[in-house]
Amino acid sequence: MSISAPRYAAGPSARTGPASRILAIASREFFRRARAATLLSVALTFFVVVTSVVVTVIFASFLRAPTAGDFESVYESPVWPFLMLIVAASAGAGSLAEDVGDRSISLYLSRPIRLVDYVSAKTIACGSWLVIATVGPGLTAVAVTGALGYASASVLLAALLGFVATGFVAAIFFTGLALALSSLTNRALYSGVAIFGVILVLYIGGSVVAGITGNIYVPYANPIENIRSVAHGAFGVSGGTATDPASSALTLVGSGVVLWVFALWRMRRVEVVSE
């Protein structure tokens, strides 16, 4: 057998910059996550949010002129956080874990890519799915309600800003959480279960401890309560939450960033341990 050396139809080419390489990893990861579980959970979120908001606003319109606060009702139900957990688990649990598991991470890191670039690319992909799930349905609900003519333009604009603000804060937190837990294992299933476990422990534990101790800072440990509080603030709903909206937003964004840094640190460790 005699084989000729490879001939390249495309001649020498200038190399692209790091942004292009990051985007290549991010887009590949984004479409890799477009699996049934992710698509179904996102579709279900759209259905639940749009239906819930539109029905609430229509019923409110029978009694009075709808306000931005009527659009916030979806955050009062435990269904929305539950759907976000499913989206975070399906879109983010495997993003780092699977690359460590199948060891393709060593291929990425043998390329002109820094670890921080790699983790950033994964963040973009996971964050994109979460933004689609957290912001997209709200914007759709605003568009549908506006098209049906049940709310004024100013109310629709306020609701739109409320959904964007709450959605982005929630997306930052859930992205950081998903990546941090994904960096701890090489099995997507484990990190997926851990996402549910961590949030449930914080939700139930925070409520119980806050009830027993009466400490006003304990509810800040509960991400679901924080998101609800941010939603109240963003949609202009006063009272009804145990935390301050601005402080809750800061807590969620800060936690997301800290968890992201943890994921980065953890990936550096994984690379050494894998030796």
């Binding site: 001939r7 495309a10 292009s20 290549a24």
Partner: peptide, 25 residues
Amino acid sequence: HMGRVSGLPKEVAISRAHDVLEFVG
């Protein structure tokens, strides 16, 4: 994909991928 991560533009990466996969049989 690995060609793109190595810094090749998308079209070049696809073209090269065809070439090298033919080379390796």
